[in-house]
Amino acid sequence: HNLTITQGKLFFHYNPKLCLSEIHKMEEVSGTKGRQERNDIALKTNGDQASCENELLKFSYIRTSFDKILLRWEPYWPPDFRDLLGFMLFYKEAPYQNVTEFDGQDACGSNSWTVVDIDPPLRSNDPKSQNHPGWLMRGLKPWTQYAIFVKTLVTFSDERRTYGAKSDIIYVQTDATNPSVPLDPISVSNSSSQIILKWKPPSDPNGNITHYLVFWERQAEDSELFELDYCLKGLKLPSRTWSPPFESEDSQKHNQSEYEDSAGECCSCPKTDSQILKELEESSFRKTFEDYLHNVVFVPRKTSSGTGAEDPRPSRKRRSLGDVGNVTVAVPTVAAFPNTSSTSVPTSPEEHRPFEKVVNKESLVISGLRHFTGYRIELQACNQDTPEERCSVAAYVSARTMPEAKADDIVGPVTHEIFENNVVHLMWQEPKEPNGLIVLYEVSYRRYGDEELHLCVSRKHFALERGCRLRGLSPGNYSVRIRATSLAGNGSWTEPTYFYVTDYLDVPSNIA
């Protein structure tokens, strides 16, 4: 807008934040220059609390790290170098490059900038070799853009010569660093050979998330399962459950009422301010606690030095998902009996873990797994792929695949051998790939016309006998059925096997 004052003059007093240069501009645009008398524009009460600059400061050096910015700028000295009290560095987070010096300023003089007072450097006698002032900004957020400017702080001049310097606002972004852990990993099994893994992005990506790394490792069953005799009275049979499938998407929606109208769909109840505040506090606490764990609990591995020492970490090797089922080394339970199943799973520490690289999504279907087997899954978020990966501390989750139908069934015939004193040795093959492992066998036998009897055969007993022995049988026709019990439950009964026990007292003698 054009402003013209045809008559009258300007009068400025007691404006401590208004620089004289701005008042002189007002004289020019209003056409009143030359009308004012000496005392109409006070030299001592206008701009006496402001830094009124008329020179431009330029930054000469900028260096960044993930949490620091090192700045240096060209030296500046007023005509009387004693008038320079120091520099004021202003900075704040700036997602967009549209910041002005006066953003967030209120009537009390406060604003949204963080201000650092910096002492002037030592003055050199040689004007050509003056030290460049600077400042190291610490405690910054990774991968965050900051708006920065600097200006001088000078003393009051009796001659009211307006001098000083100020830089333009520059924008500097800190470097990326390792992201925080992925949030809320959930693993479920939808079949006997697959596990579905879902997660949420890290709360602090500290860069642009480029991919996720998912490692999985087959877990050995508890050692007590191999040692305890679950045929003993009072000892509860062990059981394991597989990871249940995901709930429906509708039930997972946030901010939804727990109660549904019987007449149909209901609208979600909005969260109160107290609920939102509580969630923010919980989120802040979780982030602080995660940072504490990362800094205190997890110790970084030592990389190899120039002395030739090897990095103890196993090298990563990509495998196809079809090879995942046989990740671990199978060892027989008892070496003397080769027909026992290889369900003991000690994992070799030198073995390469299978892994998958996930790009542009937060889910993965891990296939080719062994049925009813526990897996430990390790999830890392990465925001750099080359020249070397920059990934987060791992988040861990466990899951067990679903049982395989008929995996616990005894394959092959049940054979028998009759000894003296009416002892019958029953023999059968253990299931080759049971659900988890076989903890015991149930032997059901009966003599024709009598009630059915049951015998429990422990895992250890089966390994020693290759089956079991029935003792003290009365003469007669017998039928026997056997079924295995694994961590997933009972298998199917075998087809009945028949044998006849004679009275050993009636056996004919070869003595003449």
Rank of each mutant, 00 (worst) to 15 (best):
I418M: 01
A220P: 08
P354L: 10
A309G: 12
G436Y: 02
E433K: 15
S283T: 10
H352S: 05
P403Y: 10
L280N: 14
L487W: 09
Y375S: 00
D222T: 08
S268W: 03
V457C: 10
P338R: 11
E362K: 10
R218I: 05
N360I: 13
S344K: 10
M427A: 11
A220C: 15
L237F: 07
F289G: 09
V423S: 08
L470Y: 01
G489Y: 12
L235H: 12
E279I: 10
G489M: 03
P508K: 04
S315M: 10
F289C: 03
A394V: 14
Y448I: 12
R471K: 05
F499A: 02
S492M: 07
G234W: 11
S223G: 04
I438S: 03
R376M: 08
H461C: 09
N326A: 06
R286S: 10
F337E: 12
F289T: 06
Y375R: 01
V397T: 03
G489H: 11
D204M: 04
Y498Q: 12
L437Q: 06
E279L: 12
G308E: 06
E247W: 12
V414S: 02
V457Y: 14
V296T: 08
M402V: 11
A484Q: 03
S486E: 00
L225K: 09
L293S: 15
W242C: 02
I410Q: 07
K236W: 04
V480L: 07
D311G: 03
R318M: 12
V331L: 13
T373Q: 09
T401H: 00
R319S: 11
P434G: 09
D229H: 08
L228S: 05
Y504P: 08
T307W: 07
V214W: 01
N421M: 05
Y500T: 11
S284T: 14
Q275D: 12
L464H: 12
Y292S: 11
R447T: 09
V439D: 05
P431A: 04
Y478F: 08
R459P: 04
D385Q: 05
I209G: 12
R319A: 14
L213H: 05
Y292F: 04
R313C: 15
E388F: 15
K236F: 07
I366D: 01
S474K: 05
Q256H: 12
G325M: 08
N339K: 09
H371M: 02
E282A: 14
K287T: 14
C456N: 01
F215M: 12
N206L: 07
Y259H: 05
P245L: 11
K236M: 14
P332Q: 10
L473D: 00
H416L: 11
R370S: 14
D250Q: 15
E389Y: 11
R471C: 12
N295K: 11
D408F: 01
E451Q: 15
V214P: 00
K361R: 05
D273Y: 05
M427H: 15
S257R: 08
I276N: 15
G264V: 08
E227A: 05
I482R: 01
E260N: 14
R370Q: 08
P314I: 02
V439Y: 14
S239E: 10
N206Q: 15
V414L: 09
F462H: 11
H461P: 04
P238A: 07
T340K: 09
S251E: 13
V501A: 04
G489V: 11
G306N: 10
E495Q: 04
M427G: 08
E290Y: 03
V299A: 15
S320Y: 11
S367T: 05
D291R: 07
I209S: 12
L364P: 00
V334I: 05
I418N: 13
W216V: 10
M402N: 15
Q380W: 08
T241R: 06
N490K: 09
R353E: 10
V297S: 10
F289V: 10
V397A: 11
D506K: 12
P434K: 04
P245Y: 14
A220I: 10
Y441K: 00
E265I: 14
Y448E: 15
I410N: 02
Q219A: 04
L379W: 04
P434N: 08
P238K: 11
S444G: 12
T333A: 13
V329A: 15
E290F: 15
K460L: 09
Y230K: 10
N490R: 14
G491L: 01
P434Q: 07
S342Q: 05
L437A: 10
T340M: 14
R286K: 11
E351A: 04
C382F: 01
K236A: 15
S486R: 02
C269F: 13
M427V: 05
N339M: 06
Q429T: 05
P300L: 04
N435P: 01
Q384I: 10
C456W: 01
R218W: 15
L232N: 15
A330V: 14
R466L: 09
L277D: 06
S444V: 13
K302H: 13
P475S: 06
L470W: 03
C231T: 02
E388K: 07
G449L: 09
G436L: 07
E350S: 14
R400D: 04
F372L: 06
G306I: 10
P403S: 07
K287E: 13
S479P: 00
T288D: 06
K317W: 05
E249M: 04
P314L: 02
Y375N: 00
E247L: 11
A330H: 10
